[in-house]
Design a protein around this nucleic acid. Structure first.
Length: 938
RNA sequence: UGUCCGGUAGCUCAGUCGGUUAGAGCUCAGGUCUGAUACGCCUGGUGUCGGAGGUUCGAUCCCUCCCCGGACAACCA
């Protein structure tokens, strides 16, 4: 007789093979069509809010693995808060203005003012950003990220642009804005500033000259070296390759720590005494041809500070200053300093309060009021200046010098630094820095070192230059008085009105001819600022433009979550604007993650060829595997990906999936109203639920603290060890062989039901597609999505948890010991399946007590055909005693001598005892034709 | 170059407020099952805890230096 039909064979439509690459897009479509995100928001209305505010990615290019990590982490946070009982809206955003898009558009339509007008250019930029948003949105959705994709925020929205202006107005009202100047890279052919990315280095030949700056008071200089007079000229020579910047000279810089020498000698029939860096003495003396040179003395650069020198051709005194940028790599060890023409010069000049002389116009011509060189083009002025120095006998040497020099990438012409007026958010004027530093302390930084990092950065940062001389961005809508340079007295009011115009028409309206008229500003008296805002300002005020504006959101957000580079970026720009506007932070917590690197810890780059595309992972292994990788990695550091790592993660995925599948197969036809009460359940099943309850506690705590890695590790371990290798393996016997409706089988199914209900929710924030797929295979009436629920509440713990858990732990250790013993028998060829053996145990202490609790059901726990135990004292002498945690045990494993029951596969003495069923053991007969066997424990 | 973060088995991660043979899961190998079947179960190996010094009775854990990797260092998000 075939007893297959009397066995409860597992059945499910839930496939073992995930085939995620095909299945996920279909699930995604379901989510979209059913408007899942919107329904979740309705469903969770009234719950406490949890706001994760999305840092906008830049709308350029297809999504890469870094984007994927960021969005997946955000999604796991949002979904876990949702499952924890919050309303957790997620409004994704995009950063749309700025240089990268300008450069992309320039490639297609050319530069503003050359081939296109600014208005058209901005239109093209806007259209480009739109296309990029569509592209990236598709990618982000495919990751399984749930959010308001139909109505995201984007900084190119008219309303966003308008609110940026309003945000700036609020900051100005707070008194944080200041005007100033700053040197920027300038192309005279473009007539505008250049971004770093627009500069390329080419070899250029420049005049290299040594110029003597004579001391105003020779005696004073000599005194430093303890030298008496008697020289025709005393001074400090500088070396420069940009003679044209000499009209802007305001100082000569030395290095405080360097050793300088005073060298005397004959030069063109004169007695010179000059100061040179000691290390460069020889080369300078040779280069300028100083004859009969002799060393008169030495000193540190610091000793010469504040000494006054004569400008080589203007009636002007300039000081000796000190700067760390002065080196002995070339020149004389004394650096010509023109704050108007160099970044370092500008910064050091600031320390010494030097005037910022900027005698060159946008076209590269010296301004009309420049003595001697008015109207002259800078590069042509080089010759005249050299001649003039020659005439003044201050040109110690003149040669041609080939060096790498920055050029405009478009015009291939040499660029220069030029100071231009700029707008700043001042860190000190109204105590912005101090307040920001204070506010930082009240925020939870994850990981904790983020606090130190951002504090150091805020402490050290210079004022924030928010103006840019560019086209694609939000205008700084200010009017300045043409004579006084003062802001219009109604500035904030005018800004509000310009914001209203922008809200309606977009940023272009600021550049229309009628803007003065529309705002009622006198064009004769006032000049319009045409600078745009730094893109960091755009995203930096997203708390104002999004959190404050959108219904359903609020400021401060509960969390900002970005890559660790954003300590300098978005975290900081957001903090500063929020503190400037409200005196408080825009977020309560800040979580940072590391960057993605390859297996060797190297960053991904096209040139190294180690780039892993998220699209490729999703189209092969599936988004859930990608998500599981994110959960498994320690996001606080660099996160490695490689084929091997993904392979490991896929293995783990399969384990979790198959565990869920096993639960589903054995719950086929089981509905929740068939669940037994805890008191009716078998102890082993209660233990299993208890185990899940413990794990759930851990998972909830881990999710609360964003420790996804812990979830991954413990859920995976749970599926593999506690379930697969122990519990599920043991209960197969009951599930398959006992009557479908028997208490012992229902008890196991009750446990499995609770476990799968809990498990599907644990994994939902990470394995969203798979969790939803499991959800759809669960019976009973239920919400149509796992994301419409919260953590499972049907789990329970044991009545005497410590004692019972310890008891089971001992039984598990007995089982492990028996497994090892069986393995030895198996190795000898005497047995294959564990059901082919009989086990005899001898135990003492707590182990004996534990065995007593399971009694004659020990064989089911061990999955052996027979299992008996006795007192350790009675153990035969030849059997080894093994020490367990709490007691000792001796084990004997022998091949069973009995016939195998064809139905339950146990080898029992009573097989064949029943005439009608000669192939069955006693309990199978009972289960097939009787009322069913009884089980007490397992 | 500077500041900060990190370097524990083939992989992902624990861990030690300094103390006997450094852990887990996976991979891998061998075995077993064929009623989770491109699955399940059992057994097993694996590490100069990045390197070199130092402090200490004793260091993977503390200190110094070095090597390797990463982030940041303003018109670049």
């Amino acid at each position: 007789m075939d007893y297959k039909d009397t066995i409860n064979l597992p059945r499910t439509a839930f496939p073992m093979k995930a085939n995620l690459a095909n299945r996920e897009p279909k699930m995604l479509e379901q989510w979209e069509q059913s408007k899942l995100y919107e329904r979740i928001q309705e469903h969770t209305a009234g719950r406490p809010l949890f706001i994760l505010h999305d840092g906008p990615p830049y709308a350029n290019g297809d999504i890469h693995i870094g984007h994927a990590v960021n969005k997946i982490l955000k999604d796991m946070v949002v979904k876990s808060r949702l499952m924890a009982g919050f309303q957790a809206p997620y409004v994704p955003g995009w950063d749309c203005h700025g240089l990268p898009i300008e450069l992309q558009v320039e490639k297609k339509v050319g530069k503003v003012g050359r081939k296109v007008d600014a208005r058209t250019f901005r239109q093209k930029c806007r259209a480009y950003a739109d296309r990029q948003i569509d592209l990236q949105r598709k990618g982000f959705k495919r990751l399984g990220v749930l959010g308001e994709w139909d109505d995201p925020y984007a900084s190119r929205d008219f309303s966003y642009e308008a609110n940026m202006v309003r945000a700036l107005a609020e900051i100005i009202e707070g008194g944080h804005l200041s005007q100033g100047v700053k040197p920027v890279n300038w192309c005279f052919d473009c007539g505008s500033a250049l971004a770093e990315a627009e500069i390329e280095y080419q070899d250029k030949s420049s005049p290299a000259i040594d110029v003597l700056f004579g001391a105003v008071n020779a005696r004073k200089l000599l005194q430093v070296f303890n030298v008496d007079g008697g020289h025709d000229v005393v001074g400090i020579p500088i070396w420069t390759t940009t003679p044209w910047t000499l009209p802007a000279n305001e100082a000569v810089a030395l290095n405080a720590e360097l050793e300088y020498v005073l060298v005397a000698g004959h030069w063109r029939a004169k007695n010179l005494a000059i100061v040179i860096a000691a290390e460069l003495q020889e080369s300078v003396v040779e280069r300028i041809g100083l004859e009969k040179s002799e060393l008169l003395g030495t000193c540190k650069g610091a000793a010469l500070e504040h000494l006054q020198l004569r400008h080589p051709f203007y009636d002007h005194q300039v000081p000796v200053i000190l700067g760390e940028h002065v080196t002995t790599e070339a020149g004389t060890g004394a650096v010509h300093t023109a704050p108007g023409h160099g970044e370092e010069d500008f910064l050091v000049g600031k320390q010494y309060d030097l005037p910022v002389t900027s005698p060159v116009g946008a076209d590269g011509l010296f301004l009309p009021d420049v003595e001697l060189f008015a109207g002259m083009f800078v590069w042509n002025a080089n010759n005249d200046i050299v001649e003039l120095l020659q005439k003044n006998s201050l040109l110690l040497n003149h040669e041609s010098f080939l060096h790498s020099y920055p050029h405009c990438w478009r015009h291939k012409s040499p660029t220069a630094f030029r100071v231009t007026p700029q707008w700043f958010i001042d860190m000190e004027k109204v105590g912005l820095r101090a307040r920001a530093l204070e506010v930082i302390k009240g925020i939870r930084w994850i990981p904790a070192w983020g606090e130190e990092r951002i504090s150091a950065m805020v402490e050290g940062r210079p004022e924030w230059c928010i103006s840019r001389q560019r086209t694609w961005g939000v205008p700084i809508t200010l009017f300045m008085h043409r004579q006084s340079g003062e802001l219009h007295p109604n500035t904030t009011q005018l800004m509000q009105r310009s914001a209203d115009l922008i809200q309606e028409h977009g940023i272009d309206c600021w550049y229309e001819d009628d803007i003065f008229q529309r705002l009622g500003v006198d064009e004769g008296d006032y000049e319009q600022v045409k600078d745009i805002l730094d893109v960091w300002f755009d995203s930096g005020v997203s708390h104002r433009c999004v959190l404050d504006e959108r219904s359903g959101l609020r400021r401060p957000a509960d969390i900002y979550l970005e890559g660790s580079d954003q300590h300098r970026g978005w975290f900081q720009s957001s903090l500063l604007t929020s503190v400037a506007m409200h005196g408080e932070a825009p977020y309560r917590q800040v979580l940072t993650h590391g960057f993605v690197v390859d297996a060797d810890g190297r960053k991904m780059s096209k040139s190294l060829g180690n780039v892993v595309a998220p699209q490729k992972i999703m189209n092969t292994l599936g988004a859930d595997v990608l998500r599981l990788w994110v959960a498994a990695a320690d996001y606080s550091q660099e996160m490695s990906v490689s084929d091997e790592i993904l392979k490991r993660v896929s293995d783990a995925y399969r384990r979790i999936r198959n565990t869920a599948r096993f639960l589903l197969t054995n719950l086929n036809g089981f509905s929740r109203d068939q669940c037994l009460q805890a008191t009716e359940m078998l102890p082993l099943d209660r233990w299993a639920v208890d185990n899940a309850a413990i794990l759930q506690e851990d998972c909830i705590r881990a999710y609360d603290n964003y420790q996804f890695q812990k979830i991954y590790q413990s859920v995976h371990r749970f599926c593999g060890r506690e379930m697969g290798a122990f519990y599920l393996d043991i209960i197969k016997d009951r599930l398959y062989t006992m009557p479908a409706n028997s208490r012992a089988r229902r008890s196991a199914q009750t446990a499995m039901h609770h476990i799968v209900e809990a498990l599907v929710r644990w994994i939902a924030p990470v394995l969203s597609y798979t969790a939803e797929e499991i959800w759809q295979h669960l019976d009973d009436d239920r919400e149509d999505s796992v994301f419409m629920t919260t953590w499972y509440e049907g789990l329970f713990t044991l009545d005497h948890p410590e004692q019972e858990r310890a008891n089971w732990q001992l039984l598990i250790s007995v089982r492990d010991a028996v497994s090892r013993a069986i393995e030895q028998l198996r190795a000898s060829g005497a047995a294959g399946s564990s059901l082919a053996v009989d086990v005899t145990l001898w135990a003492d202490g707590a182990v004996a007590d534990a065995l007593e609790t399971i009694g004659d059901e020990l064989r089911f726990l061990l999955i052996t055909s027979g299992a008996t135990f006795a007192d350790l004292k009675d153990a035969p002498s030849g059997v080894e005693t093994i020490a367990l945690a709490d007691g000792n045990i001796a084990i004997s494993v022998l091949p069973s001598a009995h016939t195998k029951c064809v139905r339950c596969w146990h080898q029992r003495e009573d097989v064949g005892d029943t005439e009608d069923h000669p192939e069955l053991c006693g309990r199978c007969v009972e289960n097939v034709v009787g009322v069913g066997e009884e089980r007490r424990v397992a």
